[in-house]
Design a protein around this nucleic acid. Sequence first.
DNA 1: ACTAACGGGACAGCCCGTTTAT
DNA 2: ATAAACGGGCTGTCCCGTTAGT
Lengths: 221, 221, 221, 221
Amino acid sequence: MLQAARAARPKASAGRDPARTREALLAAAFGQIHRAGFRGSDVETILHEAGVTKGALYHHFDSKEALGYAVVDEVVAAIMRSKWVKPLARAEDAVDALVAIVASTPVTPKELSYGCPLNNLSQEMSPLDEGFRQRTAKLFDEWRGAIETALRQGKQRGTVGEHVEPRDAAIFLIAAYEGYLSLGKCFRDACAIRAARNTLVGYLDSLRPPAGDQPSRRRLR
Amino acid sequence: MLQAARAARPKASAGRDPARTREALLAAAFGQIHRAGFRGSDVETILHEAGVTKGALYHHFDSKEALGYAVVDEVVAAIMRSKWVKPLARAEDAVDALVAIVASTPVTPKELSYGCPLNNLSQEMSPLDEGFRQRTAKLFDEWRGAIETALRQGKQRGTVGEHVEPRDAAIFLIAAYEGYLSLGKCFRDACAIRAARNTLVGYLDSLRPPAGDQPSRRRLR
Amino acid sequence: MLQAARAARPKASAGRDPARTREALLAAAFGQIHRAGFRGSDVETILHEAGVTKGALYHHFDSKEALGYAVVDEVVAAIMRSKWVKPLARAEDAVDALVAIVASTPVTPKELSYGCPLNNLSQEMSPLDEGFRQRTAKLFDEWRGAIETALRQGKQRGTVGEHVEPRDAAIFLIAAYEGYLSLGKCFRDACAIRAARNTLVGYLDSLRPPAGDQPSRRRLR
Amino acid sequence: MLQAARAARPKASAGRDPARTREALLAAAFGQIHRAGFRGSDVETILHEAGVTKGALYHHFDSKEALGYAVVDEVVAAIMRSKWVKPLARAEDAVDALVAIVASTPVTPKELSYGCPLNNLSQEMSPLDEGFRQRTAKLFDEWRGAIETALRQGKQRGTVGEHVEPRDAAIFLIAAYEGYLSLGKCFRDACAIRAARNTLVGYLDSLRPPAGDQPSRRRLR
DNA sequence: ACTAACGGGACAGCCCGTTTAT
DNA sequence: ATAAACGGGCTGTCCCGTTAGT
């Protein structure tokens, strides 16, 4: 993500480049918001990090709020899709794919301490701003839809057990995953997080068809 | 909670009552923080809601931060304990108790939209303020400890299956529970939340000893 | 002072003029600080007097402290230089020049009551703020240097006695001069101040070469 | 000073002791004011240092201002008298006494950095508060009077030269002395101060009768 | 398209003084 | 006489957004 269309004019010696300016603003805003939350991100800091000035920001976006919306719609959405939607779309075995995604989540305190950008924003802004609430809800829904579809296909292909309710399982997975990241943000304890991740992988394994069909039952290391 | 020890109130009505003033401040601050987050809570609003003045606030607390810490240490802790620690301590069947607690979580959009006070605060402040991080982590740990102990006792009493790892299961339960509340804050959809809660109850049932030992497997409606 | 380089003013009247805004802030701050001290000067009053707003102030200066530093570095320094350094640099007879400078110090209670801006600031802020201490010390040093140089040249030219120790005499002169202004601030008695000034002129005369070499020994009236 | 009358009741086991409380307040206030100025001294800090509470302060003094006045009238006055008035009253040779007093002024940066309490207060408050102005002026006048009287007696006794104008010389001495302390506050340079003190002693020597009568002309080391 | 200057509301905390109670 | 609780104004400054200028 973030690379978007910037084919022509690679760099006119620091001259005007609206697309680049917009991307720089989005990237800087995403970083700030991820670290300090939306209200904790002051515009000047974002500007400084992006290397542009007020005028540029308010030329591209109507307000700080609009910038925040764009961060959700573009940056956060892109991250979520590249991590969840795309891998699941190409996966042959839904559960294997989910396990791989979960396993790829970082466990270093540094990375954990900022939490999940989508959940952070949703938690902070949902009660305060309907625009943020709707946008983050839409992303959660897209996320859930991708998992649900993968599980549903898995049931047809026989890689997911008949007992699984795709929609409920998808929501449960997202909830547990976000819950772990929330705790990780607070605990910063790689060991606890790793154990938690294993429990989550254990839950994912329980989605497979029972007994003889699928042996696996592997543990993450 | 919040009642503290105030045996003989010397002057009932309009007179000075430091304890009452302090509690009023804590209660008002808790409400504001729950609704708008710590940084979104402005002191004057808290003051107005508590019916006291700046002088009183800064007599009882050194700063807004200190007030926030006290809210975590006293109000949030009291809520968590009365909802989780105490019922679990008296419970004969740990899983039954956990199911009852989870089932008691409200599902109305209004109540959901503010989320869990402990998780809100932890999510908002952990990356920004070490004091909040430590305090919320301590509460999460106490919470986990209460569940873990209950499960461990359950294993001894035979009400919890041998396959259950008390510590991991406790963390997983908290994570999934907080995850649901997070999603609930964003979705405000009672129906989805109820389904999610059922999935969680389903998970809790899986902690019981397998088959013949323990009878029924009820579903929440 | 304060005129800086502003060759071509692009828009004469109501338009934006950063240099003018900055100078207005410095001038207003200087006036307030001179009358009420640095800590006694409130920002809003300075703003009102300068006819600008908070945004303008904090665009040009990082803080009230930074504004105060700039007042020392630019306004107070300019005053000191125009009153002492420049006249001494052009003077043919150092003692004559010093007498003229001392004689030009106003004696009306109104003017006296605010005291010397440099000494006021130094007295008020030196023990509290290292930045102010260093800046005022630097100005005192420049002042001393100007007098010292003039006296040293005077000794070469024969207008200053051989017995004079230029550095010590310069410090003594500054001390006595500031001491008088301090007393004047407190007494507000033109008569006493005039007498004091004469005593100081008497001291200055004692710096001339003894007897026959240099003629008159005038008295100030 | 500060010991006042406290004959009876040496210490009623930390019980009430109005006189002691008053003295503690004055002492703490003097210290704070000396270090941070009158406006820079906050009441709570003084209270903490004195080991009493608000009620005690406002029982003994009407306001912070009244406390400040009392500090001038009692503490600062006592210091000035014990250092200048009393030694001069007993002195046989006025100039010797003055040299001894000046020589006794400390030169360590620590002691210098806070400056002369009387001058500090006079400089800070004279333009702002008529009560402080009058009180400090009264002390400066008493100080001048003591020196003037000593010099006048010296002229009668022949230890002070006929050319000396007692009143003007007294003012000049005070001005130069305070000027040195002012510079010392800013420079914190023991070396410069010592040199300055010598110049001042040199001036004092010039007050003695010329030539054969009094040999001396000593240098301070 | 972009920059710098500027406008102005809001907010936390400081701090003096008063009141209640012993 | 002293302690603790409380009242409440004031101020530095943060920070979002607008506007003049290029």
